[in-house]
Amino acid sequence: MTLKLGRHSFADDATLMMAIVNRTPDSFYDKGATWAEDKAFERVVQVVDEGAEIVDIGGIKAAPGVFIDPDEEKGRVVDFVARVRDAFPGLVISVDTWRAEVGAAVCEAGADVLNDAWGGADPGLVDVAASYGAAIICTHTGGVTPRTRPFRIEYDDVVKSAVADTIAYAERAVLAGVARESVVIDPAHDFGKNTFHSLELTRRLDEMVATGWPVLVSLSNKDFVGESLDLPVGERLTGTLAATAVCALAGARIYRVHEVVETRQTVDMVNTIAGRRLPQRAIRGLA
């Protein structure tokens, strides 16, 4: 099925890089490097140059912290979305928000995708996506409250839970009027999960792909990588790319990333090995 992300359509076999752009002073990886609007815009220019098809703009860090009300969140992202829309008509703009009120404002400003990292915490978000013709990312969090860390959460089977919850969310979005080709599911590594859960989701990602819904993975520099290798933020790229390779082999379609170039190469190499993509230019042994 063709993937339709707002104004933009992609073929069945396309893999997409979604570059993270934080309009936050405190996100875990960049620690406010793109908090200033011009710095965030420079980041957009850079990731577009690196080949990202999507930017995912967020105004609130995922981890607990200072309360950001909807007006403050809109102040961080809405005008910025409009600026990016104006500068890059061909770019898919996603906004990382769980709030319907914020979703409506960014769609007015030109957003194509609502990335609901908190798994439907605001039930009105799907209605906003439907009314604006936007795509929606349906994540699995196990039902936790936004911006909380997991604490002793257990699942009978985390993959079955992720499949069941994201499918239910996806169907709810379709019932609300979101186009079926504009719904993406995301197991949401580390959200409502310990490291063992995220590792199992990675290992069994094919079960999510088998649902038929396009799968997004957000692995980049996360704690499950850090804990697996006992490495701090800043030293997790190799581990991230290894997890990326496993997800690519299983058939993930969208990769939410800090490092665009490295992830694109990893995904392309895996898909070439898998026979889903031609070598770019092969002559060795053939001439």
Binding site: R277, Q280, A282, I283, G285, L286, A287
Partner: peptide, 17 residues
């Protein structure tokens, strides 16, 4: 007689356009 002419050895970017 180059095998690069065969479809089964196609690349995304043709090395012999």
């Amino acid at each position: 007689s180059t095998l690069a002419l065969l479809p089964r050895y196609a690349s995304a970017s043709d090395p012999i356009p």
